[in-house]
Design a protein around this nucleic acid. Structure first.
Lengths: 113, 113
DNA sequence: AATAGTGGTTACTTTTAGGTTACTAGTATT
DNA sequence: AATACTAGTAACCTAAAAGTAACCACTATT
Protein backbone atom coordinates (compact mmCIF):
# COMPACT_ATOMS: atom_id res chain seq x y z
CA UNK A 1 0.00 0.00 0.00
CA UNK A 2 1.51 3.30 -1.07
CA UNK A 3 1.11 6.73 0.45
CA UNK A 4 -0.01 5.17 3.67
CA UNK A 5 2.39 7.54 5.42
CA UNK A 6 0.14 10.44 4.55
CA UNK A 7 -3.06 10.48 6.61
CA UNK A 8 -5.02 12.03 3.77
CA UNK A 9 -4.31 9.00 1.66
CA UNK A 10 -4.31 6.36 4.37
CA UNK A 11 -7.40 4.21 4.04
CA UNK A 12 -7.56 3.56 7.76
CA UNK A 13 -7.46 7.26 8.56
CA UNK A 14 -10.09 7.89 5.94
CA UNK A 15 -12.36 5.27 7.44
CA UNK A 16 -11.70 6.79 10.85
CA UNK A 17 -12.81 10.15 9.60
CA UNK A 18 -16.23 8.59 9.14
CA UNK A 19 -16.59 6.56 12.28
CA UNK A 20 -13.92 8.11 14.41
CA UNK A 21 -15.82 11.00 15.87
CA UNK A 22 -16.95 11.09 19.44
CA UNK A 23 -20.58 10.31 18.65
CA UNK A 24 -20.81 8.63 15.25
CA UNK A 25 -20.30 5.02 16.33
CA UNK A 26 -22.77 5.53 19.15
CA UNK A 27 -25.37 6.98 16.84
CA UNK A 28 -24.92 4.25 14.27
CA UNK A 29 -25.16 1.60 16.93
CA UNK A 30 -28.26 3.16 18.48
CA UNK A 31 -30.08 3.26 15.20
CA UNK A 32 -29.13 -0.28 14.28
CA UNK A 33 -31.96 -1.97 12.42
CA UNK A 34 -34.52 0.55 13.62
CA UNK A 35 -35.90 3.80 12.31
CA UNK A 36 -35.43 6.46 14.95
CA UNK A 37 -36.70 9.99 15.27
CA UNK A 38 -34.52 12.90 16.24
CA UNK A 39 -36.10 13.23 19.65
CA UNK A 40 -35.77 9.54 20.35
CA UNK A 41 -32.09 9.63 19.51
CA UNK A 42 -31.68 12.57 21.82
CA UNK A 43 -33.32 10.57 24.58
CA UNK A 44 -31.20 7.51 23.95
CA UNK A 45 -28.03 9.60 23.99
CA UNK A 46 -28.78 12.20 26.65
CA UNK A 47 -25.22 13.47 26.79
CA UNK A 48 -25.27 14.79 23.25
CA UNK A 49 -26.59 18.28 22.54
CA UNK A 50 -29.14 18.74 19.78
CA UNK A 51 -26.74 20.92 17.87
CA UNK A 52 -24.06 18.23 17.78
CA UNK A 53 -26.61 15.50 17.09
CA UNK A 54 -27.96 17.52 14.22
CA UNK A 55 -24.47 18.02 12.78
CA UNK A 56 -23.51 14.38 13.10
CA UNK A 57 -26.73 13.22 11.46
CA UNK A 58 -26.13 15.60 8.58
CA UNK A 59 -22.61 14.32 8.10
CA UNK A 60 -23.67 10.70 8.31
CA UNK A 61 -26.33 11.38 5.72
CA UNK A 62 -23.86 13.06 3.39
CA UNK A 63 -21.57 10.10 3.72
CA UNK A 64 -24.41 7.80 2.77
CA UNK A 65 -24.47 5.89 6.04
CA UNK A 66 -27.94 6.93 7.11
CA UNK A 67 -31.07 8.09 5.34
CA UNK A 68 -33.39 10.83 6.47
CA UNK A 69 -37.12 10.58 5.89
CA UNK A 70 -39.24 13.62 6.55
CA UNK A 71 -42.99 13.16 6.98
CA UNK A 72 -44.98 16.30 6.35
CA UNK A 73 -46.99 16.15 9.55
CA UNK A 74 -47.47 18.51 12.42
CA UNK A 75 -45.67 18.43 14.71
CA UNK A 76 -42.95 17.41 12.28
CA UNK A 77 -41.65 13.85 12.15
CA UNK A 78 -38.27 12.83 10.81
CA UNK A 79 -36.93 9.31 10.84
CA UNK A 80 -33.34 8.17 10.50
CA UNK A 81 -32.32 4.73 9.29
CA UNK A 82 -29.09 3.06 8.35
CA UNK A 83 -28.48 2.59 4.67
CA UNK A 84 -27.02 -0.62 3.29
CA UNK A 85 -23.55 0.91 3.63
CA UNK A 86 -24.31 1.96 7.18
CA UNK A 87 -25.49 -1.50 8.07
CA UNK A 88 -22.32 -3.02 6.65
CA UNK A 89 -20.37 -1.05 9.22
CA UNK A 90 -22.09 -2.54 12.24
CA UNK A 91 -20.13 -5.82 12.33
CA UNK A 92 -16.90 -3.84 12.13
CA UNK A 93 -17.99 -1.68 15.04
CA UNK A 94 -18.62 -4.80 17.07
CA UNK A 95 -15.20 -6.16 16.22
CA UNK A 96 -13.65 -2.91 17.39
CA UNK A 97 -15.67 -3.08 20.59
CA UNK A 98 -14.60 -6.66 21.20
CA UNK A 99 -10.99 -5.89 20.57
CA UNK A 100 -11.17 -3.02 23.02
CA UNK A 101 -12.94 -5.03 25.66
CA UNK A 102 -10.40 -7.80 25.36
CA UNK A 103 -7.26 -5.74 25.16
CA UNK A 104 -7.91 -2.43 26.83
CA UNK A 105 -10.52 -2.90 29.50
CA UNK A 106 -8.03 -2.48 32.34
CA UNK A 107 -5.95 0.25 30.72
CA UNK A 108 -8.99 2.36 30.01
CA UNK A 109 -10.98 2.01 33.18
CA UNK A 110 -9.42 5.18 34.49
CA UNK A 111 -10.46 7.07 31.39
CA UNK A 112 -14.11 6.73 32.33
CA UNK A 113 -15.47 10.07 33.41
CA UNK B 1 -24.46 -3.54 25.85
CA UNK B 2 -25.15 -0.92 28.50
CA UNK B 3 -23.86 2.62 28.77
CA UNK B 4 -23.03 2.62 25.13
CA UNK B 5 -24.70 6.03 24.92
CA UNK B 6 -21.85 7.57 26.85
CA UNK B 7 -18.65 7.80 24.83
CA UNK B 8 -16.52 7.31 27.90
CA UNK B 9 -18.10 3.93 28.40
CA UNK B 10 -18.63 2.98 24.78
CA UNK B 11 -16.21 0.23 23.83
CA UNK B 12 -16.03 1.41 20.24
CA UNK B 13 -15.16 4.95 21.29
CA UNK B 14 -12.60 3.57 23.68
CA UNK B 15 -10.98 1.56 20.95
CA UNK B 16 -11.13 4.61 18.70
CA UNK B 17 -9.25 6.61 21.29
CA UNK B 18 -6.36 4.24 20.66
CA UNK B 19 -6.37 4.00 16.94
CA UNK B 20 -8.43 7.02 16.04
CA UNK B 21 -5.75 9.66 16.04
CA UNK B 22 -4.30 11.09 12.90
CA UNK B 23 -1.05 9.18 13.12
CA UNK B 24 -1.48 6.09 15.29
CA UNK B 25 -2.77 3.69 12.64
CA UNK B 26 -0.02 4.83 10.30
CA UNK B 27 2.66 4.34 12.91
CA UNK B 28 1.37 0.92 13.88
CA UNK B 29 1.18 -0.12 10.26
CA UNK B 30 4.69 1.18 9.52
CA UNK B 31 6.22 -0.75 12.37
CA UNK B 32 4.39 -3.94 11.50
CA UNK B 33 6.60 -6.93 12.20
CA UNK B 34 9.77 -4.87 12.25
CA UNK B 35 11.76 -3.08 14.91
CA UNK B 36 12.14 0.54 13.90
CA UNK B 37 14.23 3.36 15.27
CA UNK B 38 12.87 6.82 15.93
CA UNK B 39 14.78 8.34 13.05
CA UNK B 40 13.67 5.63 10.66
CA UNK B 41 10.02 6.20 11.57
CA UNK B 42 10.52 9.90 11.01
CA UNK B 43 11.88 9.11 7.55
CA UNK B 44 9.05 6.75 6.71
CA UNK B 45 6.46 9.31 7.80
CA UNK B 46 8.03 12.56 6.70
CA UNK B 47 4.89 14.60 7.30
CA UNK B 48 4.95 14.02 11.07
CA UNK B 49 6.98 16.29 13.30
CA UNK B 50 9.32 14.72 15.81
CA UNK B 51 7.38 16.23 18.67
CA UNK B 52 4.15 14.60 17.55
CA UNK B 53 5.90 11.33 16.73
CA UNK B 54 7.44 11.34 20.17
CA UNK B 55 4.05 11.93 21.81
CA UNK B 56 2.31 9.25 19.81
CA UNK B 57 5.00 6.70 20.55
CA UNK B 58 4.76 7.49 24.25
CA UNK B 59 1.00 7.03 24.21
CA UNK B 60 1.19 3.82 22.23
CA UNK B 61 3.72 2.52 24.70
CA UNK B 62 1.56 3.44 27.69
CA UNK B 63 -1.34 1.63 26.06
CA UNK B 64 0.79 -1.45 25.68
CA UNK B 65 0.67 -1.51 21.90
CA UNK B 66 4.36 -0.97 21.31
CA UNK B 67 7.52 -1.61 23.28
CA UNK B 68 10.50 0.69 23.50
CA UNK B 69 13.99 -0.70 23.76
CA UNK B 70 16.81 1.68 24.58
CA UNK B 71 20.37 0.58 23.86
CA UNK B 72 22.97 2.43 25.85
CA UNK B 73 25.15 3.33 22.92
CA UNK B 74 26.46 6.56 21.54
CA UNK B 75 24.86 8.04 19.55
CA UNK B 76 21.75 6.73 21.28
CA UNK B 77 19.68 3.97 19.73
CA UNK B 78 16.04 3.26 20.52
CA UNK B 79 13.94 0.62 18.84
CA UNK B 80 10.17 0.37 18.72
CA UNK B 81 8.26 -2.85 18.13
CA UNK B 82 4.66 -3.91 18.28
CA UNK B 83 3.67 -5.93 21.31
CA UNK B 84 1.41 -8.95 21.04
CA UNK B 85 -1.56 -6.65 21.66
CA UNK B 86 -0.33 -4.24 19.04
CA UNK B 87 0.09 -7.03 16.52
CA UNK B 88 -3.46 -8.21 17.20
CA UNK B 89 -4.69 -4.84 16.02
CA UNK B 90 -3.17 -5.07 12.55
CA UNK B 91 -5.86 -7.30 11.02
CA UNK B 92 -8.52 -4.95 12.34
CA UNK B 93 -6.76 -2.01 10.75
CA UNK B 94 -6.78 -3.83 7.44
CA UNK B 95 -10.47 -4.55 7.76
CA UNK B 96 -11.13 -0.88 8.36
CA UNK B 97 -9.01 0.01 5.36
CA UNK B 98 -10.87 -2.48 3.19
CA UNK B 99 -14.24 -1.26 4.35
CA UNK B 100 -13.22 2.31 3.54
CA UNK B 101 -11.82 1.42 0.15
CA UNK B 102 -14.97 -0.48 -0.73
CA UNK B 103 -17.53 1.94 0.60
CA UNK B 104 -16.02 5.37 0.66
CA UNK B 105 -13.46 5.61 -2.10
CA UNK B 106 -15.58 7.93 -4.21
CA UNK B 107 -16.99 9.98 -1.35
CA UNK B 108 -13.56 10.66 0.03
CA UNK B 109 -11.55 11.40 -3.07
CA UNK B 110 -12.21 15.07 -2.58
CA UNK B 111 -10.89 14.95 0.95
CA UNK B 112 -7.38 14.18 -0.28
CA UNK B 113 -5.19 17.20 0.18
C1' DA C 1 -53.23 33.74 26.46
C1' DA C 2 -49.75 30.79 27.77
C1' DT C 3 -47.42 26.48 27.39
C1' DA C 4 -45.75 22.21 25.24
C1' DG C 5 -43.96 19.38 21.58
C1' DT C 6 -41.23 18.79 17.24
C1' DG C 7 -36.82 19.17 14.75
C1' DG C 8 -33.93 21.78 14.46
C1' DT C 9 -30.63 26.78 13.89
C1' DT C 10 -27.62 30.63 15.48
C1' DA C 11 -24.01 32.81 17.88
C1' DC C 12 -20.64 32.26 20.97
C1' DT C 13 -17.15 29.84 23.96
C1' DT C 14 -14.20 26.10 25.39
C1' DT C 15 -11.40 22.11 24.70
C1' DT C 16 -8.38 19.20 22.33
C1' DA C 17 -5.38 17.64 18.79
C1' DG C 18 -1.94 18.69 16.28
C1' DG C 19 1.81 21.90 14.33
C1' DT C 20 6.20 25.09 14.41
C1' DT C 21 10.45 26.36 15.76
C1' DA C 22 14.18 26.27 18.43
C1' DC C 23 16.87 23.83 21.58
C1' DT C 24 19.34 19.98 24.48
C1' DA C 25 23.34 16.32 25.88
C1' DG C 26 26.98 13.57 24.78
C1' DT C 27 30.31 11.86 21.59
C1' DA C 28 32.62 11.53 17.02
C1' DT C 29 34.25 13.61 12.97
C1' DT C 30 36.43 17.13 10.13
C1' DA D 1 36.96 24.86 17.12
C1' DA D 2 32.98 23.93 14.64
C1' DT D 3 29.75 20.68 12.95
C1' DA D 4 27.03 16.37 12.72
C1' DC D 5 24.46 12.59 14.70
C1' DT D 6 20.69 10.67 17.77
C1' DA D 7 16.42 10.85 20.24
C1' DG D 8 14.15 13.56 21.80
C1' DT D 9 12.05 18.26 24.95
C1' DA D 10 10.09 23.08 25.77
C1' DA D 11 7.44 26.91 24.72
C1' DC D 12 4.26 28.61 22.06
C1' DC D 13 0.56 28.75 18.42
C1' DT D 14 -3.55 27.31 15.41
C1' DA D 15 -7.51 25.04 13.66
C1' DA D 16 -11.08 21.97 14.25
C1' DA D 17 -14.28 19.65 17.16
C1' DA D 18 -17.38 19.88 20.57
C1' DG D 19 -20.24 22.26 24.10
C1' DT D 20 -23.73 26.00 25.86
C1' DA D 21 -27.61 28.61 25.79
C1' DA D 22 -30.97 30.90 23.58
C1' DC D 23 -34.09 30.98 19.92
C1' DC D 24 -37.29 29.64 15.68
C1' DA D 25 -41.94 28.15 13.17
C1' DC D 26 -45.94 25.68 13.41
C1' DT D 27 -49.77 23.52 15.72
C1' DA D 28 -52.36 21.48 19.64
C1' DT D 29 -53.62 21.64 24.26
C1' DT D 30 -54.95 23.73 28.64
Amino acid sequence: MRYIQNPYQCPVTRTMSIIGGKWKPIILNCIGEKALRFGKLNQLIPAISNKVLSNELKELEELGLISRKEYSELPPRVEYQLTKTGLSLIPLLHELANWGNTNLAKKLENLVK
